[in-house]
Design a protein around this nucleic acid. Structure first.
Lengths: 99, 99
DNA sequence: ACTATATATGAACAATTAAACATATGTGGG
DNA sequence: CCCACATATGTTTAATTGTTCATATATAGT
């Protein structure tokens, strides 16, 4: 239970607490994408995408491989997707109660 | 899948992205506590605890009941605990790979 | 009513951060 | 070698946020 620090745990959730990063992660949960594809799908600037991808890389949420000029990103593993899906469920349940 | 906005999802994770709030939530996942108990356990000022409790209230992560001078808080439901546990697992797995 | 205890709230401050802008690096084609 | 495209990085700025300090509200006991 206490094998992990609250600080570290908080840092993990902080990564997930940004809409841009969530969009990227959800997209990558469906398919591997290069940066321009991500950019189009997320609908923001190239710089922003690249900056956020770096954060996702550094925190081991995504990994990548290079093919020529393109860099293809994918989820590091499926664990993150599971956590996000759980959160979505939680929020949807919460909304039902307020209906 | 897209029944929920990325913004809302991000806001949810943002709540979990603070060590103080995580400490409170983990404590409350074990047992109902009043504010002073929470304060002692978390090891921070009364004001800080109270501020964070308000955030947790407003986001429906905790609920409370009053008994005399004391206010007892508990988790709103067990869903949050599940999400946190999943995250802990994820991080622990990540650390194994770097060992 | 007064006091002590428990909890909440308001305001100010320091630190963090996402995005924008500019620029750099890398890679393949001609 | 130069050019166009793809991606990364550095810097600055505006906005957000957790804590602290001060103060307010509530409740029970005397």
């Amino acid at each position: 239970m206490d094998k992990i620090s609250y600080f570290k745990l908080a840092e993990f959730f902080k990564i997930l607490s940004d809409p841009t990063r969530l969009k990227i992660l959800m997209l990558l949960s469906k398919k591997e994408c290069n940066v321009s594809e991500i950019q189009k799908n997320v609908g923001t600037s190239q710089s922003t995408v690249s900056h956020q991808l770096r954060i996702l890389r550094q925190t081991n949420l995504v990994k990548y491989s290079k093919y020529g000029k393109h860099v293809f990103y994918k989820l590091y593993d499926d664990h993150v997707k599971t956590i996000i899906d759980f959160a979505v469920e939680h929020i949807l349940e919460g909304e039902e109660k307020n209906a």
